[in-house]
Simulated assay, not measured.
Amino acid sequence: MKKAAWFFGLVALSGCTAEETSAIGYSLNSSLHAWDMGGFSYHDATVYAQASIPIEIAQKWKNRGFSSEDAKKWSAAGYSPDEARDARDEGIIAPADIGDWTSRLHRAIGQSDIPHDEVVTYANASARSGFTPEDVAAVVTGTNLKMDDTRGVIMAATRVHQGVSIVQVERDDEIGKALATKNAVAEAEKAKASELSRLNKAYGSDVIDACHGSPENELMTAQNIANPYAAAGKCFTIHIGWLSTPQWLNANQALFISNVPSLPAILVSGDGPLKIGAAAVIMGQSPQQYTSALGTLETPLTVRVLKYFTE
């Protein structure tokens, strides 16, 4: 009798729309009601439920564009929804068996604590390059390359899989690293020379020499605010009098009281009249203390103008 009911139910379902089929399916299986509330078709609900994928994880698969069948396949291979999406974005159509990769790497290398994300990276790369866990093991045990250097190991494992000897792979790796180091040093020197040229053009070699390098530093750091002595001997770039009110001591010196309560006063001096609002390179000095109108001893940030410049 049950077989007959199932048969007639199947016949009835075969003539229904997808929405009607889901409605009928859910009405016959109340245990999947939560999936209906979650916006899943009855078909997808049964696929996920049979694969023991919780509804909250199924929602992630759905949000990342996987059908229930594909999600079941990738999940069974050991991928999370994010890992599967990343692999698919890299052009990988079929998932590798992460469980198989993990066990084979453990056996071949004798290391049981290989991070899951590293295994996924190797498995994904193998889908494109064809190398095996044993090729990876040969590289890690036969060269100075480490498992966490996935890029280097993948390149070497690919060559091993193509028939290149471990000895040759290791020799080429050492040559490549030496060349990369040489190129990195050359690039660093080039960048340093370019930056020095820019600084000389912007401020002049006299300023760069006086500052022992770049003056492009921030004056109002927590350290300088807490300890005005910390700025002594260091160079900074500022706009004279920015967001502050000057109290002139003479034409070449003024105490600037900040309009921002949390910022300290700055005592600025120069070899000539101060140019309010101008961009300048300044150098911190030993603080010049004074007694305020309230009778308290004040220790302001004290700086001297080295040079004005045009921005």
Score class of each variant (00 low, 15 high):
1 M>S: 11
3 K>W: 09
4 A>D: 09
6 W>N: 13
8 F>L: 06
10 L>Q: 07
10 L>D: 04
11 V>L: 15
12 A>S: 10
13 L>F: 10
16 C>L: 15
16 C>Q: 13
16 C>W: 05
17 T>L: 05
23 A>K: 15
26 Y>V: 05
35 W>P: 07
35 W>N: 10
39 G>W: 02
40 F>L: 10
44 D>S: 15
46 T>G: 00
48 Y>S: 05
50 Q>R: 13
51 A>D: 11
53 I>A: 01
54 P>G: 05
54 P>Q: 01
59 Q>F: 01
60 K>C: 08
67 S>A: 03
70 D>S: 12
72 K>Y: 01
73 K>S: 04
74 W>Q: 01
75 S>T: 02
76 A>M: 06
76 A>R: 12
79 Y>H: 11
81 P>D: 10
82 D>C: 04
84 A>M: 08
86 D>Y: 02
89 D>W: 07
93 I>T: 15
93 I>K: 14
93 I>A: 14
100 D>L: 12
104 R>W: 00
106 H>M: 04
106 H>Y: 10
110 G>H: 01
121 T>Q: 14
121 T>R: 15
124 N>D: 13
124 N>M: 09
133 P>A: 07
134 E>D: 11
134 E>V: 09
139 V>S: 03
144 N>L: 00
145 L>T: 08
146 K>C: 02
147 M>S: 08
147 M>Q: 06
148 D>S: 12
148 D>Y: 12
152 G>A: 14
159 R>L: 14
160 V>N: 13
161 H>I: 04
164 V>R: 09
165 S>H: 02
165 S>D: 13
177 K>Q: 02
198 R>A: 14
199 L>G: 11
201 K>D: 11
201 K>P: 00
204 G>S: 13
204 G>F: 03
205 S>E: 15
210 A>W: 01
213 G>Y: 05
214 S>L: 07
214 S>E: 06
219 L>D: 07
220 M>K: 09
221 T>C: 02
222 A>P: 00
224 N>G: 06
224 N>H: 14
226 A>Q: 13
226 A>H: 07
228 P>C: 03
230 A>Q: 11
233 G>T: 05
234 K>V: 04
234 K>H: 12
237 T>N: 05
240 I>T: 13
246 P>E: 05
247 Q>T: 09
249 L>E: 08
251 A>E: 13
254 A>W: 03
258 S>T: 11
260 V>N: 07
261 P>G: 06
261 P>M: 02
265 A>P: 06
269 S>F: 00
274 L>N: 11
276 I>G: 05
278 A>E: 10
278 A>I: 01
279 A>D: 12
281 V>L: 07
281 V>D: 09
283 M>R: 14
288 Q>E: 14
289 Q>E: 15
290 Y>S: 07
295 G>N: 10
296 T>Q: 13
300 P>H: 13
301 L>V: 15
306 L>M: 11
308 Y>I: 03
309 F>H: 12
310 T>H: 08
